[in-house]
């Protein structure tokens, strides 16, 4: 008989990270790491969260995890230095002849 592991309630570890919501939107956020001042606004406001802070030597900047970015533009609107650019995904770029 196959054994099954039962979780009571939702006491299991968070499993939703298997659901890659990055393919939902038509745009993805890209952060310009030169412009980023590591204020953390995009991390506070990201509903996912898809943004996180990384350190590279003495430079700190935010990065977007495109596996989960739904392209909602919230980070774009709250960024104080306009370091975030929303780019349309390649598959949505339709050439009209």
């Amino acid at each position: 008989m196959a054994k099954m592991k039962l979780y009571i309630g939702a006491s299991s570890p968070a499993m939703s990270s298997e659901m890659k919501t990055g393919d939902w939107g038509t745009e993805l956020a890209y952060i310009d790491k030169e412009k980023c001042i590591a204020c953390g606004q995009c991390i506070t406001f990201c509903p996912e969260p898809a943004t996180s802070m990384v350190e590279e030597g003495d430079k700190k900047y935010a990065v977007v995890d495109h596996d989960y970015c739904k392209g909602c533009w919230i980070c774009f609107t709250v960024c104080p230095v306009d370091a975030i650019e929303m780019k349309t995904k390649e598959i949505y770029k339709v050439e009209v002849c």
Binding site: S17, M19, W24, P47, E48, A50, D65, K70
Partner: peptide, 11 residues
């Protein structure tokens, strides 16, 4: 909490 939940983009 998250990521990967099903809330609408911009919720």
């Amino acid at each position: 909490f998250g990521p990967g939940h099903g809330a609408c983009p911009g919720c």
